[in-house]
Design a protein around this nucleic acid. Structure first.
Length: 350
DNA sequence: TAGGCCATCTGGTCCT
DNA sequence: AGGACCAGATGGCCTA
């Protein structure tokens, strides 16, 4: 049984009195507040509800009369705290409620930023979100992988690219990424371009006789590489589109809007269960855990260089640094993928 | 049912 | 004084 680190159990009177301000608090909350806030408050003792300042004062007054074992305690020195008047309590509550609202809003902002990060990640799906920690890990890997593409000319369709993406990710996320890359950027991209631009001749990647589902068929149960990225990646792969500019065909659409993928499959559990068509069964869309784990275990990490610059030992971008990478460091240098990949495109077209 | 993930509240600290 | 940021605590939800 876990003991609460703070808050002594209140008696009935305390509880009832605490409910008083709770009602005020609840009525002052925004309409979108979640029900658990109220439940949460129920678990708080009167001590917390009054706030430490208030309780210190109450305790102080008690302790002046009675010591711990009932004897007269010596008078406490120092400035006497202000009497907690009703007005003061109300001000305290108002301040607390305001601070809570700010904190909520701050966290929402943080989550929004995280969501926009998810959108520029491979395997983005609106229905099956990566967890916060996995998003950050994948982002780190993605930066690293793209840097390697720039630095060493590694193909974004190579095994090494996936190795880098999967490094340090959980098994389900690795499976997801592996599944995405198994499908292959070519298929996804070419079909996407086919849809948008009417480009004929879209085909699956070599070694993967995959036919992209027709509009009437259920979609494959996994995430996809973000199409806007793949378009760029594809643009320097030396296929039929090697001369096309990275943003061609996609310039008319918002880069990250719109559902690109159906509900994802993680470890074979589909968010939206659908009878697979015979075609889908043939395609064998199950993720490839062994594949992913093999990549993870076999690739050297961290890299010795990044975009031509040596990576110092203990660089915060890489493991062993206990997530010390500050947000601004993590995100600001990370140019939107269309910039990075168009840069790559120009390199490869030279 | 345990564990992971998440949203929220809260008090402390630092800064303006 | 008040806001931003942070970390700890807690309960709800979901999944294996």
């Amino acid at each position: 049984m876990m003991t609460k680190p703070y808050g002594k159990p209140g008696d009935v009177t305390e509880l009832v009195s605490s409910l008083g301000w709770m009602e005020e608090d609840l009525s002052s909350q925004d309409g979108d507040r979640t029900p658990e806030i109220g439940h949460y408050a129920l678990h708080r003792s009167n001590r917390e509800e009054l706030g430490s300042e208030d309780m210190e004062e109450e305790e102080e007054e008690e302790e002046e009369d009675m010591g711990l074992d009932g004897e007269k305690a010596p008078k406490r020195r120092g400035p006497k705290k202000k009497k907690m008047t009703k007005a003061r309590q109300e001000r305290f509550r108002a301040r607390r409620v305001k601070a809570n609202a700010r904190e909520r809003s701050r966290m929402h902002g943080l989550n929004d930023a995280l969501e926009s990060l998810r959108r520029v990640m491979p395997c983005y799906s609106k229905t099956q979100k990566l967890s916060k920690i996995e998003t950050l890990r994948l982002a780190r890997n993605y930066i690293w992988a793209l840097s390697e593409v720039l630095d060493s000319g590694q193909s974004p369709e190579s095994n090494g690219f996936m190795e880098m993406l999967c490094k340090g990710l959980s098994q389900p996320t690795s499976n997801l990424v592996a599944g995405c890359l198994q499908l292959g950027p070519s298929t996804m991209v070419l079909n996407k371009m086919d849809e948008k631009c009417g480009v004929p001749g879209a085909g699956g990647p070599q070694g993967h006789p995959i036919s992209y589902p027709s509009p009437g068929l259920p979609s494959p149960p996994y995430g996809s590489l973000e199409a806007s990225h793949l378009l760029h990646l594809k643009s320097f792969k030396g296929t039929a589109y090697e001369n096309s500019s990275p943003n061609e065909c996609s310039s008319g659409t918002p880069p990250y809007d719109g559902p690109l993928t159906p509900p994802l499959s993680i470890s074979g559990n589909f968010a939206l269960k659908q009878e697979p068509s015979p075609h889908e069964a043939e395609r064998n869309f199950t993720p490839h855990p062994a594949h992913a784990t093999h990549y993870i275990s076999s690739h050297p990490y961290p890299p010795t260089s990044l975009a031509g610059l040596p990576v110092p030992q203990g660089h915060p971008l890489f493991p062993g640094s206990r997530y010390e990478l500050p947000l601004e460091m993590a995100f600001e240098p990370f140019a939107p993928s269309h910039i990075v990949t168009s840069q790559m495109s120009s390199i490869y077209s030279e």
